[in-house]
Design a protein around this nucleic acid. Structure first.
Lengths: 143, 143
DNA sequence: CTTAAACCAACCGATTGAATCGGAAAGCCA
DNA sequence: TGGCTTTCCGATTCAATCGGTTGGTTTAAG
């Protein structure tokens, strides 16, 4: 598996925020309820999204989270890279991986590179806006 | 990560066999030595390759393993599917996965399906023969 | 000064990955 | 027959990761 629940949940939250975007902050409680995910678990995930600048968080009453930029400026690969650490299909291609001593005679390295590229290209080309559905009138309307 | 050591090792062994193919059986000991992989660990991997008909094993003196068909008739996806169980990029797409109750409203399902297809298409199109290098004269010559 | 919310660190149980161990059965050869 | 060699097989180990929880601390609004 390339993508664990962490990445999938992060994506769902981002989409949720894109679909319910206002000038207000959206509290985690509401996101978690809508998405049916444990609040406490989401907390961990959103923390790293905030730390890397994909979301802005505000504490206290009236606080919550909101996107820091328009939905079409988030590539899916960015969101997944951040939560998963990397999207490499094999450990040889992971960022900090030690150089393999068999590399010069390796018959498979180029194939793995190709696979990595195919995955990355696919996820680079899709943005949050492509996945978020424009909100219907009256659909989950926030007072 | 889509592919663990199990799949990577299986692939390396298959390529090794393709490159050293004769009418003889190749003992595990030699494959393991050439590839620098633990014999005992490879044993497990080769067992499943034999059980699924990708390799033929022969016990006893003079025994070992050999391919059951020409190298260009093994798709990389077949070998990896077998050792990894599945190549799904997310658990939602795994073979025995329970149907997700959120499927009708899921914004990401089609995207995951697309990713799955991109990966599968890539690995379907490559065969063992594409990765095996034709043996040079005198290269790893077996007495 | 109370209440709602994000932030933060530590912990925990189950699963998976990567092997290893100790043999049993099969086939070759003398 | 008995000794090799080699595959076949099930169980076990050990560490890391996954998925999630507990319990508390700030921060901000009213």
């Amino acid at each position: 598996m390339v993508v664990s629940t962490k990445g999938r949940y992060a994506l769902r939250v981002m989409i949720d925020l894109a679909e319910h975007q206002t000038d207000q902050y959206m509290p985690l409680k509401q996101i978690a309820a809508r998405q049916g995910i444990s609040e406490k678990y989401l907390e961990n995930i959103l923390k790293s999204l905030v730390q890397h600048g994909l979301l802005q968080g505000l504490r206290g009453k009236g606080g919550g989270y909101r996107l820091t930029r328009p939905a079409d400026q988030y590539r899916i690969s960015d969101i997944l890279m951040l939560t998963e650490g990397n999207l490499a299909p094999v450990s040889c291609l992971e960022p900090g991986a030690p150089a393999c001593s068999r590399l010069p005679e390796c018959r498979t390295y180029e194939m793995w590179r190709g696979l990595d590229k195919v995955i990355r290209d696919y996820l680079d080309q899709i943005t949050l806006a492509d996945l978020a559905r424009p909100a219907l009138a009256g659909d989950d309307y926030i007072i």
